[in-house]
Amino acid sequence: MKFSIGQFRFWAIGLASVWLTLFVLFPNLLVILTSFLTRDPQATVSLPINADSYVRTLDLLYLRVLWDSLRMSLLAMIACLLIGYPFAMAIVSLPKRWQPVILFLVILPFWTNSLVRTYAIQFILGNQGIINKSLIGLGLIDKPMQLLYTQFAVILGLCYILLPFMVLPLYSALEKLDVRLHHAAKDLGAGPLSRFWHITVPLTSPGIVAGCLMVLLPAMGMFYISDLLGGAKNLLLGNVIKTQFLHTRDWPFGSAFSVILIVLLGFMLWLYFRASRFVSKQGGLNGSDF
């Protein structure tokens, strides 16, 4: 018995390690290496090794893009949190047998390619889209509002695509929350709002941070959202990287941006681990029921 468990462990960990080495570690090392090389019109990249690409990212134009995309992603994250938290609380308050159904509905849109869904948003927001047409039809406005190709459209698109990533970790955190702690808080004189701030929010903070990261991290790189909904002005960091690789063919520069994005995301993950350590999950309750 021991032998087969050992063998299973060897293969499971071994395969995962090989996979991660080949398809995550190795490509990332290549990206880091490329970021220190020089652009070469013939061979894509060439020696010498230098940090020119990083120096070039300090250009005000790119810092502006970095700031813009961080801001749009943060706004999308906050919007997702404000929508996702009450939504997750509502799911948890449903009878147990309905919860999986609602969760299934939450992830159902994944069955359609997100690019297709982004095109759909484009149609909805466009000057001839359903919103503008209805408002004009109702006589509320004379000419179409500019909804598409605005920051609002990008944030809306990010929110729409990424909301499930906020809801799922929040749901799992809220679902684990012990109702007995609520009873105890109630017994000690805490009204509904106090219970929410002093019990629910702190105890679900790992879920909040996880959800925020799951929205914020991918949002920075979702170039097709800003391509389709943001027009030329509202760029995400992902757009810059894509342009450098596919259009300008400046791989070292694109790689440098990728490395910056990875470092940024790594920093946020570090924050997450700090936050989850802050809330010690065990203790305070023993197993028996009240």
Binding site: D178, R180, L181, H183, A184, A185, D187, L188, H198, I199, P202, L203, V279, S280, K281, Q282, G283, G284, L285, N286, G287, S288, D289, F290
Partner: peptide, 14 residues
């Protein structure tokens, strides 16, 4: 004006 000592203690872990 009533308080309870719960079977599970229900101390706030955070």
């Amino acid at each position: 004006p009533i308080n309870t000592v719960f079977q599970s203690y229900a101390l706030f872990p955070h």
